[in-house]
Design a protein around this nucleic acid. Structure first.
Lengths: 331, 331
DNA sequence: CTGAAAGCGCTTACAG
DNA sequence: CTGAAAGCGCTTACAG
């Protein structure tokens, strides 16, 4: 290939490499004609800057990193697409990294591959997170509460979302529930469950451990758990709180396979409001968490922290209950 | 933060930076004790190498790039996850870039951010692709046929998949069809359609342009197109070929809303074999294209091209028809 | 086995 | 407005 460098451009254009660099970077000090000519030569030679050379000297890479344990899941693509567009607006690129530990984020930040990170782990790495806080590297956590000078969290108020669902069911007069847990060490899964449980406790209602099923945030897993539950012949609860939509679909799959009617025999509520909630029959009552907002806010806040315009914060997004067919059983 | 460099380690350990570099990189020439000690010091100081310094001098970055126009779509996450694991096996990292033109891939390769690229564009950028071919940068295209010294394509034999579906319907004695087109300039969309059409033509069957609908590979768009088609009151076709599963679901949504029975009144076939094919009622007959294989093969081939072990190739993956309820109408 | 030195491609004060 | 020079953090022949 024979890589073209600023040296080649300088020779070809008959100027120094400093002038080439200044022209290329639009430093206003260069005479317009010189600049024009250099740009033309650069273009003719198909010049592409070596990012390593540039980043080595420069303080910024103008790249943000999105670190995640998995690209799957119902809303990752939407979240990332929104973040991507928000990055473009602010003059940044977005790189996505699949990784199992925060170490990779640390390496990328300290290795000067990115100027800041957004971290979305399905499994929390406490040690890595602490290290990030120590270093005070510009970071946004989407999955836990952490705050530093340049470290923020933008999370769902999942505890409150759990209480919202409990409130809703209690108002209907229900007292017997099943709960589908999510990924066991996932922040949102834990908080949604806690909120639901605590609100019920206030009214003196305890959820029987037999009625707490593991859904792992997955449709298939939830379906299996519910099918197994039904096998046991326990009395049916009046309503099910699934800690995400996917597991709610799994629960409904299993119920309907047994001929149990939703919402007449049992009501179901999920969390997330993925698109499919509107397509599934019956369509699903759920909490709209607002993950689109999370994506754009993450980038905005991160850029501000990088620029030193704002300090770290903990931002909680409030969910909203969207009522649909799956809970139109009684009053 | 006060970035730690090999200089700091050298000073702290009382050796030269060359020795530090050699120790860190496991060059066997270093005395084991020296090496151990240096590693310990590096660890103690929380040393993280500056990737720009390293990549500037080194010929390789050990990073592969996956460039795509969108993270959405039913199989992107699976494809990327598989590629990620395959990268780990080969000692590479995987970076994902959302981008609208091949220019970004070129910048990354020539900018020495990555050693090679896998490109999956929903909209084809001919100019950019040509430039990659000229440069002969290690690249795998997943969306079009291109071949160079270090440029390969790993694509579905979508033309053949189209003929397979046509064959299947013809054997059942059908002669009246509707087709749901995909994204108009998408390679697979075009080829699936061409294969289907050409096979029918051989039997003297022409698909009425009124029966060729635009589905854009999206469920909603296909649903709307089919709903609009039904409004017109044209005679119903015997079968529908949707050029991907998502649009097949949309078509079935629209048909069932009008009380049309699948497969009794009309049969439907899709392409991809996404998971949902098994969940939808009726579950969907489709072509299993084998995108998992595409992902792992892409990484393997790319690594071999980078290492100079293999030249570019055009690899076509054969699809397989999976028969399910949506075509169990007649013989 | 270890160290001094050159250089990767770029940016950035600083002199002219 | 332009250029000579230093230096970003690393690797890599080469001498010892």
């Amino acid at each position: 290939m024979g890589k073209v460098t600023i040296k080649d451009i300088a020779r070809e254009a008959g100027v120094s490499i400093s002038t080439v660099s200044n022209a290329l970077n639009g430093v206003s000090v260069v005479k317009p004609e010189t600049r024009e000519y250099i740009l033309e030569v650069a273009d003719r030679l198909h010049y592409i800057p070596d990012l390593n050379g540039r980043n080595l000297k420069a303080k910024a890479t103008k790249v943000l990193g999105l670190f995640t344990t998995s690209l799957k899941g119902p809303y990752f693509a939407t979240l990332a697409d929104i973040m991507f567009w928000e990055c473009v607006k602010h003059g940044y690129e977005l790189n996505i990294f699949v990784t199992w530990s925060e170490k990779s984020a640390i390496t990328s930040i300290l290795g000067k591959r990115v100027d800041g990170c957004v971290i979305l782990s399905h499994d929390v790495d406490e040690e890595g997170a602490k290290r990030i806080l120590e270093l005070d590297a510009p970071t946004i956590f989407l999955d836990r509460e952490l705050k530093g000078n340049r470290v923020s969290s933008i999370i769902f108020d999942s505890y409150k979302d759990g209480t919202t669902v409990a409130d809703y069911f209690l108002k209907k007069g229900f007292r017997n529930f099943a709960v589908i847990q999510g990924v066991l060490d996932n922040y949102d899964a834990i908080e949604r469950f806690r909120g639901f449980r605590d609100r019920l406790l206030k009214d003196g209602i305890v959820v029987d451990p037999e009625y707490i099923l593991e859904g792992g945030f997955e449709r298939e897993k939830a379906r299996d758990a519910m099918a197994q539950f039904l096998e046991k012949g326990n009395p049916m609860p009046e309503a099910v709180f699934a800690t995400n939509d996917l597991s709610a679909f799994g629960v409904m799959d299993a119920l309907m396979e047994k001929g149990i009617k939703i919402p007449e025999d049992i009501e179901v509520v999920g969390v997330d409001d993925v698109e499919m909630c509107q397509w599934y029959t019956p369509n699903l009552t759920t909490i709209r968490t607002g993950y689109e907002k999370q994506g754009s806010l993450a980038v905005k806040k991160l850029v501000k922290m990088i620029n030193g315009e704002e300090q770290g914060d903990i931002i909680k997004l409030h969910g909203q209950l969207i009522e649909r067919e799956s809970t139109k059983g009684r009053g």
